[in-house]
């Protein structure tokens, strides 16, 4: 595999700093190197104080969300050379409190998200014709949302209205409406049927554009609105 040198311009901030700044690093990459691997190489070989979040390395945990060249991505599945820029700018997510360097505090995200009470396991829609094994109640899989916060970072309404519930939580509520699994739906619909709930959304779908995990939060918000209208008109969900 051929190797190439790429410059990384990395957002830096430590608790107590008066202002953030950018540091520049040069990293040798090949056709396969991801932004996450490049940042790990920087931390290992050039600056051991760089703070990054990562865990699964395959777009499942949602911890490596950041902005690369201004766009929200998962660093673990973002190929460096495919970005096609001689300098790669790496910054933390927006609309979340900064902890240090590329790491933000996910506390507020989870405060809202967890109020959707979305069960973690759902029915699997894959291989619908396959028989279910003896002793297994139904084919199940984890929910698609990996709680990465990319959508919240990209959402212009979250940026201007701190109380807006935001795309991830609203999408999670829609999943509960679709498949309640024992969760009570009416209180959730009341929660999202509000000024800072699903009526606040501008429907420009920046959230769906950055979602790395097929959730389509913007589409889910539209579906929630339709459901609320339907219920207001006295029609049942179907």
């Amino acid at each position: 595999m051929s190797e190439q040198k790429v410059t990384f311009r990395v957002f830096r901030y430590k608790q107590g700093d008066t202002a953030p700044h950018y540091d520049t690093f040069t990293v040798t990459v090949n056709e396969r190197t991801t932004v996450l691997e490049a940042l790990q190489a920087i931390r290992r070989d050039q600056d051991g104080t760089l703070v990054i979040r990562h865990s699964c390395h395959h777009a499942s945990c949602g911890t490596c969300g950041m902005r690369v060249n201004g766009k929200e991505v998962l660093a673990c599945v973002t190929n460096v050379l495919e970005l096609g820029t001689p300098t790669v700018t790496v910054e933390p997510l927006q609309n979340a409190p900064l902890i240090s360097d590329l790491v933000v505090d996910m506390g507020p995200f989870y405060e809202t998200f967890s109020q959707a009470h979305l069960p973690f396991v759902r029915r699997s829609e894959y291989l619908p014709d396959a028989e279910v094994a003896e002793g297994v109640p139904f084919h199940m899989r984890f929910e698609s949302c990996i709680e990465c916060g990319l959508c919240v970072s990209a959402c212009p309404v979250v940026a201007s209205d701190a109380e807006y519930l935001g795309p991830a939580a609203l999408a999670a509520v829609w999943r509960v409406v679709q498949e309640p699994r024992g969760t009570e739906v009416p209180p959730l619909l009341d929660w999202v049927n509000s000024e800072h709930g699903c009526w606040r959304c501008h429907v420009a779908l920046e959230c769906s554009e950055v979602c790395p995990s097929n959730v389509d939060p913007g589409g889910n918000i539209m579906a929630l609105r339709q459901e609320l209208v339907r219920r207001a008109l006295g029609l049942s969900h179907g």
Binding site: I52, R53, H54, S55, C56, H58, C61, T63, V103
Partner: peptide, 14 residues
């Protein structure tokens, strides 16, 4: 030293 589960654990086969 990193985020929790950033060593082997987060990357295992599941």
């Amino acid at each position: 030293r990193g985020e929790v589960t950033s060593g082997t654990t987060g990357r295992h086969h599941g």
